[in-house]
Design a protein around this nucleic acid. Sequence first.
DNA 1: TAGATGACCGCCT
DNA 2: TAGGCGGCCATCT
Length: 107
Amino acid sequence: MGVARRTGGTFTARVHAACARIPRGKVATYRELARAIGAPRAARAVGNALNRNEDMAHVPCHRVVLGDGRIGGYALGSAKKAARLKKEGVLIKNGRVDLGRFGYRLK
DNA sequence: TAGATGACCGCCT
DNA sequence: TAGGCGGCCATCT
């Protein structure tokens, strides 16, 4: 352990904090998240940080999708991710989310 | 300390 | 328009 212990001002902590700001029924892209924490090019690192998310109850990482609206990955499987989004009212068509409708812009 | 990995993104063919 | 390849960045071993 000690692994996820790096939280607290770290990149990972920032990612988790930004992710927690996404309201229910909305989604944000990895790129948007990266941008929100001041690292617009670190989209991949954001995914990495979310993959290490240990507190899914407070960090809704399932609300983060790819830049083109595709579901992307998820620690519990993309199917679970899609199911959770559906439950929150997010419409998924052909495995994609309508970002124009459900996309949330962090600031 | 260095190399490898990964829930991504953008450009080129 | 669609698919493939390389690049970027933080974390892990």
